[in-house]
């Protein structure tokens, strides 16, 4: 269980890190390492070089108010920090829900939100939760900074639109209007396992209890996290009552294309999406009030 030989770099700045990524063929960014090191030990990954970005002077662990009515989360913010953050618990409980369900305490102490997004495991919790929040991903590369909208970030299983010599630095999450609630719930056989189905929901309540806005995201049921658009369309503009939520949840699996594997068949996952979408919507709604 020892990784294949690789070169290790701990650059003192992000600029140097980007340069190293550019110069070294087959180099990978190392953050908390709780996915990458595991893969390397199993030799499912064998990069020639690791560029450790945790020792740069550019501190990437923070949660702060942004300029455009958004919250800025540094890419190296750990799951443990997210889970315990007062502002995240208050404004985006969907993210503290997701962070609290990742692995175990030791993994949450090391693993980072940026690492989880860049790793892009379709069954991972934070990418699914974030998909319901429509954030922007700020990256830095040789040519400078750019911002990738959420809809273009996750490309395929373990694949994002970040270039080889770019580094994710920050995730910008737009604030939701007043009377919004959010939740993430996950179906797994054991605590801390990867999701068999993960569902994120954000609900905004309008006048007279009508659904002003709703977003539902699904994980582990397609090559990337996806939105359950049909369910969203069904609920928007309708009264947020038990019946309408249940009806919307029935449609939550229409965009899903889940795999069959040892954790559950395709049909089982399609069924569970409906169950967990209903629960996530109800929990999000209970927090909106």
């Amino acid at each position: 269980m020892t990784p294949k030989k690789f070169a290790y770099f701990a650059p003192a700045s992000l600029k140097e890190a980007i340069q190293l990524l550019r110069e070294n063929e087959d180099a990978k960014v190392l953050a908390g390492g709780q996915s990458l090191i595991a893969l390397m030990k199993l030799r499912l990954a064998a990069p020639a070089a690791l560029v450790d970005i945790t020792k740069t002077g550019d501190l990437l662990s923070y949660i702060r108010e942004g300029k455009n009515d958004n919250l800025e989360v540094g890419a190296l913010t750990t799951h443990d920090t997210l889970e315990r953050s007062k502002i995240i618990n208050k404004k985006f409980p969907i993210l503290s829900d997701a962070a609290s369900k990742i692995g175990d305490q030791q993994i949450r102490n090391r693993g980072t939100i940026g690492g989880s997004c860049c790793h892009a495991d379709p069954a991972a919790d934070l990418p699914t939760a974030l998909t319901a929040l429509e954030p922007e991903f700020a990256v830095r590369g040789v040519k400078g900074k750019r911002v990738i909208p959420q809809s273009e970030f996750f490309v395929d299983t373990f694949t994002t639109s970040i270039a080889k010599d770019e580094i994710l630095t920050e995730i910008r999450i737009p604030h939701t209007p007043p009377k919004s609630g959010s939740a993430y719930i996950k179906h797994s056989r054991r605590e801390g396992d990867f999701a068999i189905v993960g569902v994120g929901a954000v609900v905004t309540v309008g006048p007279k209890g009508v659904c002003r806005d709703v977003r539902v995201s699904l994980g582990a049921v397609a090559p990337t996290p996806i939105r359950a658009k049909s369910a969203e369309r069904h609920l928007k503009g309708k009264t947020l009552d038990e019946g309408n939520i249940a009806e919307a949840a029935e449609r939550a699996n229409e965009e899903a294309d889940p795999p069959s594997d040892m954790h559950g068949s395709r049909q089982y996952r399609l069924d569970m999406i409906r169950v967990f979408a209903r629960r996530a919507l109800n929990l999000a709604l209970s927090r909106a009030r």
Binding site: Y8, A10, G33, A38, K41, D52, Q106, I107
Partner: peptide
Amino acid sequence: CDTGHCGACTVIMDGKTVKSCMVLAVQAE
């Protein structure tokens, strides 16, 4: 287990528990 599951190798690094089989020695610099 040597696979990051069992936690027998847990140590406290800079105030936080980590599985020392999931951390490279060079990261502990």
